[in-house]
Design a protein around this nucleic acid. Structure first.
Length: 485
RNA sequence: CGGGGUAUAGCGUAGUUUGGUCAUCGCGCCUGGUUUGGGACCAGGAGAUCGUAGGUUCAAAUCCUGCUACCCCGACCA
């Protein structure tokens, strides 16, 4: 790696993505090409979360990419939100005009179609047809898809104009049940992030001005990156009856009365991959926790021409053994690269374990394995037990998480003095717990002076009165400030 | 969307101030051979309308204008 984390975090981040072949710039502003290795990370995320959503009774659906303007504006009128950057489809034909391709003006659509920035509106315009009685509830749906938000400043994975995500949309007969669903999902996200991706997160509630405008309460999980900035990793919205009222979706309850439906929505996106990179990686490249690593073990043969076949045979045996035990293994037997070249390659790609096998290993009946997270070399018996490998993968997973957790805890700082606050934000960032008077204005001023924003109100909440760090006015509890992505 | 910077072969670059044998070098790629325990070596070869569209000029990578993309900083961000 040419760029070091400490010297230029942003360049380091880009370099790591390009060199590890996760993604590339597409040449279209804000759009990226997710390459096979990067996409396989997304597939790992998808597979795991999808399994969990099925277990919790959610079903997958697919709604259209394009939303008629009238449907979207219905939502927007009621949520006074109108500044959203969206892509809009206005025509349906192109034609040749003097060897140039132009939009056929005759093909102008009667009604413009908006490429979904999110699907609440189109889904709620349909829910009406599906829900009449309390017996139709709850509706627990999830959609894997893409969305477009016309962002002004984009960054690979973290904020792209088009992104891949999962959006859950549920409908419930009671407020209690909807809130439970919202929190249940928040906990699923938390668990997923920490145990699968090894990224420690804090749960919180978004302050009013920062929440999804269509929601009553927006819950989030936020993680601290290595540069001291925070990243929102997922959101879960309690929507109240906002959408059912806007789209007039009622159900008949047990007593024969009509009621508006309570609902939730929640999502995570390809942004998580950005969080994964920024949480764990080092100046040598990516570091992947074993659970999410598309390849957990790579086997590198070290041979001379005359002994290649014997080494190849043993390497294949190890490969077969590991594959049979469901360890995701890759045997790199390409001859055009030297072992040293491959060592670097898989370091950059963050493969958790590397096994070297050469004539020495076969003679001594020992194997040399190298951990990516600690760069340690460990000697194991040539005919190792699968439990040894499983335990090692488990240790690596734990170690990566503990390292991130330790860092996060170190930069969770309670402050009551604005001067210290400014210094801390400037020096090393972090999650800063401080009192806030609850006004938008104060939040704005703090942001202007420090670049830090209110990320969330800690949840579960620990109310403890105090004085706002900026204005000195009364505050109900501490909130978390941070610079963020 | 504003301010600053950058754009030369797949990648990284020299050359741009001062227009004229200037398209340089490294990596990678192809062929052959020797190699293979931390990014191997030798020999030969292919590959660039200098981001793009115009303009100035006898002559443009080089000067001027528009456009596009990327990077950094802000604004924006369900």
């Amino acid at each position: 790696m040419e760029n070091k984390r400490k010297e230029n975090y942003s360049k380091w981040y880009n370099e790591i993505i390009l060199k590890s072949e996760l993604a590339e710039f597409s040449g279209i502003r804000g759009f990226m090409i997710i390459k096979p290795y990067g996409y396989s990370l997304w597939e790992m995320i998808k597979k795991e979360l999808d399994k969990i959503f099925r277990q919790t009774g959610h079903k997958n659906i697919y709604f259209p990419l394009l939303i008629p303007k009238s449907i979207l504006s219905k939502e927007k009128e009621h949520t006074d939100l109108f500044s959203e950057g969206c892509a809009i489809v206005t025509h349906s034909k192109i034609k040749k005009d003097q060897e140039k391709i132009i939009i056929d003006p005759k093909s102008k659509l009667k009604e413009e179609l908006i490429i979904r920035p999110t699907s609440e509106s189109i889904i709620w315009s349909i829910y009406k047809r599906w829900i009449q009685s309390y017996r139709d509830l709850p509706v627990l749906l999830n959609q894997w898809g893409n969305a477009i938000r016309w962002e002004m400043r984009t960054k690979l994975f973290l904020r792209t104009t088009e992104f891949l995500w999962q959006e859950g949309h549920t409908a419930h007969s009671t407020k209690k049940e909807a809130i439970e669903e919202t929190l249940n999902i928040l906990n699923i996200y938390t668990d997923f992030s920490q145990n699968f991706m090894a990224i420690p997160v804090l749960q919180g509630i978004k302050p009013h001005m920062d929440k999804f405008h269509g929601s009553k309460t927006t819950y989030c999980i936020e993680a601290l990156m290595q540069d001291g900035k925070s990243l929102q990793m997922g959101t879960s919205h309690f929507l109240g009856q906002n959408f059912s009222k806007v789209f007039n979706v009622q159900f008949t309850n047990m007593n024969g009365y009509k009621e508006y439906i309570w609902s939730t929505s929640w999502g995570i996106s390809t942004r998580l991959i950005g969080g994964l990179i920024m949480s764990h990686s080092d100046d040598r490249g990516l570091i992947l926790p074993p659970k999410i690593a598309p390849i957990q073990i790579v086997i590198i043969p070290i041979y001379k021409k005359k002994n290649f076949s014997i080494i190849d045979e043993h390497a294949n045996n190890i490969l077969n053994f590991l594959e049979k035990k469901n360890i995701r293994t890759f045997y790199d037997n390409r001859t055009q690269f030297t072992p040293g070249w491959k060592f670097h390659e898989y370091e950059i790609k963050g493969i958790p374990i590397r096994i070297n096998i050469g004539i020495n290993e076969i003679k001594n009946e020992k194997l040399e394995i190298i951990r990516r997270d600690t760069l340690e070399t460990i000697c194991i018996p040539f005919h190792f037990s699968i439990n040894l490998i499983k335990k090692l993968l488990c240790d690596i997973q734990k170690n990566i998480y503990q390292k991130a957790l330790h860092r996060t805890k170190k930069y969770m700082i309670e402050l009551d003095n604005y001067h210290d606050f400014k210094n801390q934000i400037n020096d090393s960032g972090g999650f800063i717990f401080a009192h806030w008077d609850g006004t938008k204005n104060t939040g704005k001023k703090i942001q202007e002076e420090t670049e830090a924003t209110i990320r969330f109100i800690p949840f579960p909440s620990k109310e403890k009165e105090g004085k706002c760090i900026f204005s000195g006015k009364k505050s109900k509890q501490k909130v978390v400030f941070s610079k963020s992505y």
